[in-house]
Amino acid sequence: MTMLYDVLIAPFVEFEFMRRALVGMFALSLGSAPVGVFLMLRRMSLMGDAMAHAILPGAAIGFLVAGLDLYAMTIGGIVAGVAVAVAAGLVSRTTQLKEDASFAAFFLVSLALGVLIISLRGSNVDLLHVLFGNVLALDNATLFLLASFASISLVALALLWRPLVLECVDPNFLRSVSRAGTPTHLAFLALVVVNLVAGFHALGTLLAVGMMMVPAAAARFWAQDLTRMTIVAIVVAILSGVVGLLVSYHAGAPSGPAIILVAGIIYVVSLAIGPVGGLKRRLVPGRHLEA
């Protein structure tokens, strides 16, 4: 009993930075995981990755102006992300170019630009901070920001839920009953950006999208119904956060990668034994039923 306590609870009781990291991961899970489910269902998973990179130059300009300042980098990141998202979204809606192609164009250019700008002024430590984040060093202001973004995200998603679902299942039907399609799409892209900026502060630009996509991909194997899938994704994200922090604490491993790796392990397990289209069901289907 005491051993379990030592392993699972004590790190959070004894160290404030662990508690802060835990709260940060809760906020990130609640905001990012549901957005990730929709990204996945709209076959825009890789777009999330591209957007995470598009945020970097904005954050880097914020860094150039004000150093490692929370608000400057947040505002820079959101502005850059929204600009890229809206531009790419409009391009794909008004021309023949598909969304993935129009986003791919921004992908590497943005990453290169961001790294370049930060290297102009900062040290390698700053660069590592921006690329990989530091979930163990969340201060009050950052925690407050993460919680605010998660709240905004949850409320917005609740309002957008119906048109978003409609846009995914049957966009023609939505177009025939309402003009909400395009505004919904743009608002959703803005939500992606906001959550990626939150993820950027905790996990850095390279892993920010991890808390979004990996839990969503795992949830796909556990639920046939969108609501349940979203809940499973949130649970997977929270679980990854808690277990990842503990692993990082006990093994002295970097926390961000540990969290995403735990999510990755949950994903692989889901892929193997998940009841909805998992490998086990495919390979060992069991005997057929009566009806």
Partner: peptide, 16 residues
């Protein structure tokens, strides 16, 4: 009310 051809609906979407 408009019922388009069936092919334009995403049947893989998790909705009941």
């Amino acid at each position: 009310a408009y019922l388009p051809q069936i092919a334009e609906i995403d049947r893989s979407f998790p909705i009941i």
